[in-house]
Amino acid sequence: MDGLDARVRWISAGGWVRNSVTTFGALSWSGFRRYSTYRQATIAGAFTNTVFGFLRCYVLLAVVAGAGGSAPGGYRPDQLATFVWVGQGLLTVVALWGWTELSDRIRSGDITADLLRPVHPVIGFLAPDLGRAGHAMLFRFLPPLAVGALFFDLYVPGRPCTIPLFALSILFATVGSLAIRYLVNATAYWLHDARGPMTLWTLSSGVLAGLSFPLRFLPDWLAITLWIATPFPGLLQTPLDVLIERDPPPRQLALVALQAVWATSLLVLAVLVQRRAERRLVAHCG
């Protein structure tokens, strides 16, 4: 019976933290591994990002050229080119589109298997998603950026704090994006399928996150409202503005802090929604 006793012994607080970190790490690694098996789709996707990089980059450069000396949105040409190419790379890292795993599992009923696991569902989806983002950083972020650097003059950040801040900003963008995707998918708990909300999200996210054009092209009042009142700019525009040093350091820092606030609140909201949904599931399944 000694063996059994050893297994049920009380786990110290330090051990609990250590275990959680190990579990989180293992789940993230599984996300990374999973995406490294889709090798051909990765190549095809990177090619597509590159084509769109060319398209958007030429358009924005034409905008600067047509502005006759003034800087549209406060950007110089090399900053805009960097905005486009890094944006194409980040698009897959933050994964704005095409994630229906949760709603599919809700619809098929597989979600009940997830609820039986000793890991909270939000964490159970967040950890592999960070692994996926890590994979995308290597194989979807770098290739278009390299092509962009080959054909256009890109902006090289000068401040020492920019790169760490950019990395932090990508992390918050990914977490915020996962939280929103989780919320959109979770509507499937209540609606029959999440297709409607999903379509709305896909349409609005591209424009409101700054993919179609830099949000600074909008009138100031509108841009500021979007930044503070919605999480969208934090998904793409903020990391890009941080990297190309659009603003002085204090404001760079403030933008990332704003992102952090949004990402945390959305994650908390996702946990609350999940709790509501579980209560509903229990009530319905008896």
Partner: peptide, 10 residues
């Protein structure tokens, strides 16, 4: 929006 940011495009 793109045209708004500039006077003319190409």
């Amino acid at each position: 929006v793109v045209f708004r940011a500039t006077r003319s495009v190409a």
